[in-house]
């Protein structure tokens, strides 16, 4: 309950209240700044590392980061895996078709015979990948995968042109596209299928 006070008393009291309010404001601001500074400086928690006792391929099986894929993300990775396996194998076959052409037979017809079916493999893979609906968090990864498969497909079409004019520039262009796609899928596999490649 407020008491009625005289003019000078009121002025003094108002000054006290203002001072108190200002103090609270300053302390509050300092608190906010301190909280922000502490929060910014605290190191993020490192991903949990756990040893995996099983040994699959390569020279070793050892500690690796635990991936925190949600059930939806896991489902997406599982659905993509068989397509990914086919894409990788087709990519390696495409590279070896080029290697054989350059280092062994120099036969452009043979090259075309090896590479032409791979165009269809990549195109079919692209269709199947697009049918899988990714969770929102993996939409970008999904788009990258679709683009990578398109790049591989485009690389095969470029390679085949050697059979028309015998120019190596088609192979060089195709290799650049293939390497770009290979890099993209390798980055994705680190997220979707941890441990896909072991040290060996």
């Amino acid at each position: 309950m407020l008491k009625d006070v005289s003019g000078p008393q009121r002025t003094a009291r108002m000054a006290t209240l203002k001072g108190f309010g200002l103090g609270v404001l300053v302390v509050g601001l300092i608190g906010i700044v301190a909280f922000a500074v502490i929060r910014e400086n605290v190191k993020p928690v490192e991903p949990k590392v756990e040893a995996n006792a099983s040994f699959v391929g390569g020279l070793s099986q050892h500690a690796h980061e635990t991936m925190a894929l949600s059930p939806e993300e896991e489902s997406y990775a599982t659905a993509l895996w068989p397509i990914h396996s086919e894409v990788k194998l087709a990519a390696v076959r495409m590279i070896f078709a080029g290697l054989a052409y350059k280092t062994e037979d120099h036969d452009a017809k043979k090259l075309r015979a090896k590479v032409q079916p791979l165009t269809k493999t990549f195109e079919d893979a692209g269709i199947r990948v697009r049918k899988i609906k990714p969770p929102a968090a993996l939409q970008e990864a999904h788009n990258t995968y679709v683009e990578a498969v398109k790049l591989y497909s485009s690389a095969t079409r470029e390679m085949i042109k050697v059979a028309d004019d015998g120019k190596d520039e088609h192979l060089i262009l195709a290799q650049q596209r293939s390497e770009q796609a290979s890099l993209a899928i390798l980055k994705l596999s680190d997220v979707l299928w941890p441990g896909e490649y072991k040290p060996n």
Binding site: V92, L192, G195, K198
Partner: peptide, 18 residues
């Protein structure tokens, strides 16, 4: 996923072969 079970082509990612 997560393993190659020592298949002979394991260890050669397309990126390296490229």
């Amino acid at each position: 996923p997560g393993g190659c079970a020592r298949t002979p082509a394991c260890g050669y990612p397309p990126k390296t072969l490229d």
